[in-house]
Nucleic acid binder design. Sequence first.
DNA 1: AAGATGGGACAGCCATATTGACGTATCTTG
DNA 2: CAAGATACGTCAATATGGCTGTCCCATCTT
Lengths: 169, 169
Amino acid sequence: MAVPSSISVPPTASPLFLRENEVRRGVELLFFGYTRLTRAIDEGLAEHGLGRAHHRALYFIARQPDLPISALLKILAITKQSLGRVLTDLSDRGLVETRAGDVDRRQKLLRLTPEGIQFEAQLFDALRNSLATAYAAAGQESVTGFWRVLEGLIPAEDKAMVVALQKDI
Amino acid sequence: MAVPSSISVPPTASPLFLRENEVRRGVELLFFGYTRLTRAIDEGLAEHGLGRAHHRALYFIARQPDLPISALLKILAITKQSLGRVLTDLSDRGLVETRAGDVDRRQKLLRLTPEGIQFEAQLFDALRNSLATAYAAAGQESVTGFWRVLEGLIPAEDKAMVVALQKDI
DNA sequence: AAGATGGGACAGCCATATTGACGTATCTTG
DNA sequence: CAAGATACGTCAATATGGCTGTCCCATCTT
């Protein structure tokens, strides 16, 4: 079938008018790559009766300890109510604790407990195994390209947030 | 905070023992890149009262017309019941049609209607805009690396399926 | 004729997200 | 100091997209 969104452009066309197959390849690899990577941690989460939403919170709290709730809300881009449930679950299991902000006492700063740190590390190991294998198979140059393309997918208004995450490592 | 899953390895260590920051960067870019890309199509879907699950089905049916249901189930890796609901919605809206398989008449071969073709193309345009911008900003070499790393994330047992998708473009 | 396979359908459940409204503590500013 | 903005919590209702288990029918295979 000739997929109708195909655009016939000569090779000299603007680089913004990519041939359809290059775009479809990216869409599909992103879909399969992302879903398969997340599956790597499902088992560990299920042992604690948790889901992927809990892992996302755990991950970013591990990444930026003393993260205020408002910052986590921006990162995850979900509603306060949705996050509230997730944080309640994590607190009940003793994986996350909060304390009042020192400069602004309305804030609650999130932090992993020692158990939370250990659990997040265990989940992270699964992610590392998957990504390390892919990185090694692709080579360092490819890894750089991988990062560059993904950075281009992040809208300008979110980019500062992602950069802030990565600057202290 | 010293995230405890960090492993201290000298630069000469095995490439499988990547430094933590390289792995975290990949995890985060994949998360933000994937979620932001999928957001590009939400508006178009909402206009028809559809969600992302519907788009995934539409996408792969567009990609491989006359796809049997069993093949779509393998691609999406969801249950027959979950897919059934999605396909019912798409049929009710006149976007997808089925016909009996010629070699095996138990099979139902899925295909987009002309309206479905047009709608999928419209959604695909949003994806193309996002990806084309990212590709152009990163450059062709980076795109190749992007593909290579993502391919490495797909488990061996799924790789044939993805390759099959991409060989006829 | 028996069994395997492709697909459909019913019932019920769970996880994760949403919106809207309201409450409380704390900070900021006129 | 009073007024308003902000950070967070919470209640209620709803939607989406998954899941399991079970049973059914048509068709293909042996």
